[in-house]
Design a binder for these strands. Structure first.
Lengths: 117, 117
DNA sequence: GGCGTACATGTCGATAACGTCAAGTGAATA
DNA sequence: TATTCACTTGACGTTATCGACATGTACGCC
C-alpha cells in the first residue's frame, strides 16, 4: 500500500529539479550530496525507492522547497515566512464571507500603493 | 552524521502530540496506524530510529502538521491551504502600515464571529 | 499492597533503503 | 562514426527501519 504517494513524489522531485530550479540530476546530486543514480531512482515513477528521513531533507534543502510539496501533502512548494504567520493564522479562522471581504480590502490597499504597474 | 535533525524531530513529534493535540502515544498510534512503541522510539531524543517515507506522512496526517515542522525545517506547524494562497501572496506585498491595519481589521471580524469563548 | 495507565527500552527476524558500480539508452555534436 | 552528456536500469552487499514482543519504570488511585 501507499503506492500512491510514491508516484507523486517522483513527479514532484523531477518537477522541482527541472522546472523550478533548472538543474540536471548531476547538479542536484552535487548540491544535495547524494549520488545522481539515487536521484534517478527516485524520479522513476515506476520505481520502488523512497527517500529516507535524511535524504528527504537533503533534497528539500538543495531544491529549496518544502518537504510537504515533495511528499505531495501540499501543492505549494514555498514555505511560510514567519512575518506573515499571525495574520495568516487569523485569516484561517474567518468565515468565507469575511475572508472574501478581507481579500478585497487587501487588494484595494495594494492598488493604492502601486497606482500604475 | 545528521544527528542534528534527529533530535529536533524527537522534540517536534512529542510537542505536536502533547501540546498541540493533547494525545497519548497510544492515541496517536491509533490515529496514525502504527504501533505506540514505534512512536516512543521516535520521541526518544537519544534514540536512533527515524521515520520512513510512509511513516512520516502518517504522523503528519494524524497530527495535522506539516512534515517540514516535524523535520525541523520550519517553525510553523500549519501548512498553506490553496484557498489562502492568493490572499497570502497579496499580504506579502503590503506595506507594514497596511499590514497592521489589515491585521487589526481581521481581528475585529474574528471577535464578531465568536463574541464569547 | 495491588491495579491500571503512560511511557521507556531492548531484542528479534524481515524488509527496505542505502551507496556503489557496471552497462545501457537516446539525443546532440564534432 | 565517434564522443559526450543526461539519464536509466539492474545488481550487489551493507545498513537501517520495520512491526512485534517482552520487560521495566514511574505515577496515581482504590
Amino acid at each position: 500500500m501507499e503506492e500512491f504517494g510514491r508516484k507523486l513524489f517522483a513527479e514532484r522531485l523531477r518537477d522541482a529539479r527541472e522546472r523550478l530550479r533548472g538543474l540536471t540530476q548531476a547538479q542536484l546530486a552535487d548540491k544535495s550530496g547524494l549520488p545522481s543514480t539515487s536521484i534517478s531512482h527516485f524520479e522513476n515513477p515506476e520505481g520502488t525507492r523512497k527517500p529516507s528521513f535524511d535524504n528527504l531533507r537533503r533534497l528539500a534543502n538543495a531544491l529549496e522547497v518544502t518537504t510537504d510539496y515533495l511528499l505531495g501533502r501540499s501543492d505549494d512548494h514555498i514555505g511560510m515566512p514567519l512575518a506573515a504567520d499571525a495574520l495568516y493564522r487569523d485569516v484561517q479562522n474567518l468565515t468565507d464571507v469575511d475572508k472574501e471581504f478581507a481579500q478585497a480590502m487587501i487588494k484595494k490597499m495594494l492598488e493604492k500603493n502601486q497606482p500604475k504597474e
